[in-house]
Nucleic acid binder design. Sequence first.
DNA 1: CCCGGTTACGCTTGTCGTAAAGATT
DNA 2: AATCTTTACGACAAGCGTAACCGGG
Lengths: 281, 281
Amino acid sequence: MDPHLLRTFVAVARLASFSGAARELGYTQSAVSQHIAALEGDLCAELLTRRPVAPTPAGVRLLEHAGPLLLRLDAARADVLRLAAAPPGRVTVAVSPLAAGPRLLAALPATGVTLRVLAPAEVPAAVATGGCDLGLVDGLAAPSDPLRLPDVAPLTVTGAGEDGLAVLLPADHPFARRASLRLDDLADARWIDAPGVAPAPAAVRTAPALRYAGTDLHALCALAAAGHGLVLLPRRVAGAVGAGAAVPLSEPRLVHRTELLAPGAPTPAASALAARLTASR
Amino acid sequence: MDPHLLRTFVAVARLASFSGAARELGYTQSAVSQHIAALEGDLCAELLTRRPVAPTPAGVRLLEHAGPLLLRLDAARADVLRLAAAPPGRVTVAVSPLAAGPRLLAALPATGVTLRVLAPAEVPAAVATGGCDLGLVDGLAAPSDPLRLPDVAPLTVTGAGEDGLAVLLPADHPFARRASLRLDDLADARWIDAPGVAPAPAAVRTAPALRYAGTDLHALCALAAAGHGLVLLPRRVAGAVGAGAAVPLSEPRLVHRTELLAPGAPTPAASALAARLTASR
DNA sequence: CCCGGTTACGCTTGTCGTAAAGATT
DNA sequence: AATCTTTACGACAAGCGTAACCGGG
């Protein structure tokens, strides 16, 4: 189970082609074929059907493992390299769209910081693998509970803010004038699934009316205000949206929480910024 | 970052000896030396000091990554192999000491099951790496929240029971006759840290009076009753203990929860048993 | 001087690429 | 027939072991 073999395996599965994976990885088709054969021999199982190229059940299982595995591997290498690398003055911070609240943004120093907006699910990986020096993620959690993040690497997680939740409704929605809502009230409603922007409780993800793949908050709010579906937002954000109506969510007791992520061995510049950000909350 | 190199690295670090690791892994000292040299060259950093052999800061960082990484690797291999392996009728279940409640034990079939008692932290790994076909873990969580388990592999987690918490005190403890306790009341108390048996909230782990490394519940209760420190237990268990006094914990709102763990591809016998166990709750 | 880690060197093994063959649409 | 995977084979590099070397207690 050499990581190289795993890497070619996921490439082949993703591209559904041996030759495509070979091109992407800089191998010959022959080498890719040998990689897959080696894996299959090692695991005593067919991992891919050929023609068409698709993962078998065993291959699907392996794929589920391979992603996190390769991620952790990159994270480990990046983490150790970060210790040795000469620390540059610049810091790049991975932020999910809703994680950058006004207080946090105000605490940023005038220079030397680069912000990279990513989907929440990508932020931990970006920090772990060294693409970014710090991360700000947001998500749903029980009050004063830390966020449940995939543990791609031993990251330092620090709470950086909590807010209530509100549902963003079109202005003419029957519930638009309610003082508060329970999630049960909206059991039959259609939600917009926007994994790149807004958090969604498990119960909501069942049958999204619309899927928005971007990371633009305003676009999402416009969609919601136009009646394409409901969106769950932190109250402060929902209240500031011009269009539509924001109604606080009373049940279940969930909060919108944002966390600061730092790698195990942050650069001096990164830990200075982290201290500044946590002090400002 | 070949896993083989990582494996030798953790062995060398654990044994604090190149030659020792060589013996353990079936290599020559020379090969081990080359492994470490290769890793250090790859990561551009000294990982170990020689004479005495001890990890450098960079080595410590790598060690933190290496464990979970190698675990996941084993888990992946085991998970795929499980699909191919002929499913034997026997099922072995990893259980943490407090996870096996009477209802669950009653639901076990008469034959074909092996129970293996492990520390809670070891159960997910045992299931993931294929040592066991199912797992029952217990731990602390907010009410109706799933347990926070290390994600060594994509395991199926099913709730299998919740109970309140109680503190086990010596019978002559000043609080022994109270109807309920808050954790704050016990801020200055000394606790027994028993990671192999009883869960402990983060706040408690600060300065344990005693550390109990075994997995024997009765031994732990005897220690607590004898005044060596306090222990947190599920109420049903604490109430059934002969010695000492069990006082329910009212704050914070935590519960003792047990979860059933199944690998991504359980054997037929394992999933049959899992169905039986979940039906019985 | 001994114990233990490093370095040198030869051998085996594995891995990749070229090229031919086989299979599928 | 064209495209894509597999197989055969030769070249090269990597990895391990033996053995000599070196540095600290």
